[in-house]
Amino acid sequence: MIEIRVHGRGGQGNVVAAYLLAMAAFEENRYGQAFPNFGAERRGAPVMAFVRIANKPIQRRNQVLTPAFLIIQDQALLQVPGVMDGLLPEGKILVNSSLSSSVLANKLGRDVISLPAAALAKQILGRPVPNTALLAAFFTLSGILSLESLAKVLSKRFKGPVLEKNLLLIEQAAKEVPANVWQTVQEEKHVTSA
C-alpha cells in the first residue's frame, strides 16, 4: 500500500488532487482511497488530504500518519509545523516552488523535487492552480500510475476548454521532471490486506 499526503491551502484544489489520485488508481484496476482532513476551511488556510493506493481492498480509515510521499502545493508550507511529520525515512517530497530541487533538498535534508507548478498553470490555464501539474509530475516521478489514467480522470471531472488546457498542462508538467526516479519507494509492504 502506498500512502500519500497532499498539503495545500484552501482554494488550491487540494481535495480534488487527492480524489484525482485515487480515481486514477481506480482507472488502473487498483484500490484507491482519498479523503480530506477538514478544518475550518477558508481560502489560504493550510489544508491536507490523504490518499492510499493498494492492490487489495483498503480497510483502514485513519489519517495517513507515515506517508511515502508528500505533495506540497505551496513551498511556504514546508516551514509549517506538522507538514513533514511522519514522512518515511526514504520518503519523497514534491513541491510547487520556484526554487530549485537542490536548494530545497539541501535546506530540508530530504529528497525533494520542485516544480514551478503554479507558474506553469498560470501560463497554460490562466490561473495559478498547481494541483494537476503536480499530479502529472508525481505520476512521472514515481511511475505509480500512468499519465493516461490522469488524463482519463481529468476528463471525468472537467469539460471543454478547462479540460483541454489541463491536458496540455499535464503533458507539459510531465516533461519538467525525470521519469521513474522514485520508483523504489512504491514497493508494496508485505501485508495480507490494506
Binding site: 487527492a18 480524489y19 480515481m23 484500490y31 482511497q33 482519498a34 479523503f35 477538514f38 483498503i58 480509515r61
Partner: peptide
C-alpha cells in the same frame, strides 16, 4: 460524517 461521506473509493 467525513470518514465515509467525504471519502472517495470504489
Amino acid at each position: 460524517g467525513f470518514t465515509l461521506t467525504h471519502t472517495l473509493e470504489g
